[in-house]
Design a protein around this nucleic acid. Structure first.
Lengths: 321, 321
DNA sequence: CTGAAAGCGCTTACAG
DNA sequence: CTGAAAGCGCTTACAG
């Protein structure tokens, strides 16, 4: 491997000059510059990036922590992050954790070791307290509603969004409403369940734990969900499903009776929801991804709220009260 | 930022000894080792990873080139790659290219600059000739049938797999068979089209370009595909769709007439195909991902063929000849 | 505009 | 078992 010094020797200049040429510094004699450039080409010289990183103290590598990449929710976030990263010529190091805490710590440790300049956490399992210990090592942005810390956040109001969905169903006459969420202990689910409880109280509907279906996230989970609903003694007339994928799977798996009588609202507004005429709450995931990235480069810590909106389609029907 | 030298000074030993402690070398006095460990803890010392990389000449970073991550085909590959990478404590740098050549070159350049130890190419747009120029900089594995070069390959026989699907339909009495593929110029599509042509010739069926539908890859593309088929003057009795996602979208979008009369075979055996009782050709993508990773660490260049198999479900019906 | 020199923070053969 | 020294390959203030 030829190095900068050899190039300098062959070109008859000092290493400093070669470095200046490579980094496009002004004040280099045109003739010398050309000579160096030519030698670089001849010798097929490649700068050692690790030496540059050592010297500069940064790597242009940004870590992204996600549980899975095979779900449109997360792949849209990645899409947005990537689009912005390309503009600044930063690279994305993917930590696909499956919510494994060790993997999450790995990412934080790489930030600490300076192999990553910054970190984006799309979803976490690890405690916030642990994450906060790493803030001193580099900017961290997270897709979660936390405003009291040094974390940079982009987030949506899960409580309000869920309430919007529930109220939409209420306005269409529904009084027996269920909901399906993913991990019960996730911060988003906690907000959603709170919205559901408050909604029931406010509308004087009986709140029942059994009306909350847990661990539904994939398309194929919608099939299982349909089975659960079908075997229910008092099946709901409507259901809020916290992801379009599951909502779509559910819609497609319904028997004829439920197909007529079950109203469904999904979340995220993925393409499949349009294809299936599914009412949904749009979440601007790509823009959130962009924001999560850009916040890393803000001078100050910021918290960015993103609006969601209901897109009414045909999967919510009126019911006579 | 405290460094190794400061730790050495405080501990009253040489930098060499500190380094030995950190790297768990034998032959370090137990007492000194403990002292060093204690100082490291006290000073909250963190080794600079870039210095280590410079010294060692490697980074434990593996690049992965994929066009999109929001498609199960690719996310399964990533899954397999990640599972193996974790075992060797290697990290994955994701290059989500959208088939943009510049992004692909970026990945190759990072290999050249030694920021990546090795590279995995799941799908490419760039020419093979260019890729081959980078082999000297580090191991490269690719998901493609290439045996004549220094590239490490894991691959399936797209020709044979497609033929299997076509013959299955033929055996069920179908004589008017279409197919849907993604990018026409991709190597896999070229093999698939060749299989289709040869099949038509062998069975004395009329081959017609119009029976090959192009650029169908997503679930929602299945909807468009259904429209295309419905407006066809001589609609096929069966279709081979080169991905389960599109096949599922198609199946779900068919009007009642076609629902009765169109047989469908998908590819990959994703969960949705089981949910919808879709006949498919299974592709062991997770294992291929694992192989692509492990081949990087083989001493010699290898080429690994993976078998596919037909899984018969209800989406292929018998037709009377 | 240019070079000599110091330094980024580690590792490792060498000598003891 | 241990330390002094050289070196990995760059960059950059400094002096000219």
């Amino acid at each position: 491997m030829t190095n900068l010094k050899e190039v300098a020797r062959k070109a008859g200049v000092s290493p400093s000059t070669v470095s200046r040429v490579i980094n496009n510094h002004p004040y280099v004699n045109e003739e010398k510059r050309n000579r160096v450039l030519q030698i670089i080409d001849e010798m097929n010289y490649i700068p050692n990036i690790n030496a540059i990183h050592l010297k500069r103290g940064k790597t242009n590598l940004i870590g992204v922590v996600i549980p899975f990449s095979n779900h449109p929710y997360f792949s849209q976030l990645i899409q947005g992050i990537s689009e912005e990263a390309i503009k600044l010529d930063k690279k994305i190091v993917l930590f696909q954790t499956s919510y494994d805490t060790d993997q999450e710590i790995d990412a934080l440790e790489m930030l600490k070791l300076k192999q990553l300049d910054a970190l984006i956490i799309c979803s976490r399992n690890i405690s916030l307290t642990i994450i906060e210990q790493y803030i001193e090592y580099g900017p961290i942005s997270i897709f979660e509603n936390i405003t009291h810390s040094k974390l940079r956040t982009s987030y949506i109001d899960h409580y309000q969004s869920f309430l919007t969905a529930l109220n939409h169903l209420y306005e269409h006459g529904h009084r027996n409403i269920s909901c399906a969420i993913n991990r019960k202990k996730s911060t988003s689910s906690i907000e959603r369940i709170a919205a559901y409880k408050d909604f029931c109280i406010e509308k004087s509907l009986t709140y029942n734990d059994n009306n909350i279906y847990e661990n539904y996230v994939l398309l194929e989970d919608g099939y299982d969900l349909s089975k659960e609903i079908q075997k229910s003694l008092n099946p709901p007339s409507a259901i809020v499903v916290s992801g379009d994928n599951t909502a779509a799977g559910l819609l497609l798996s319904l028997n004829d009776d439920l197909k007529e009588n079950l109203s469904i609202i999904g979340f995220e507004n993925h393409k499949i929801s349009k294809l299936l005429n599914l009412t949904t709450i749009e979440i601007p995931l790509i823009n959130i991804g962009k924001s999560l990235f850009n916040q890393l480069y803000d001078k100050s810590v910021s918290n960015q709220l993103f609006e969601t909106r209901l897109i009414a389609r045909q999967s919510v029907k009126n019911i006579n009260i």
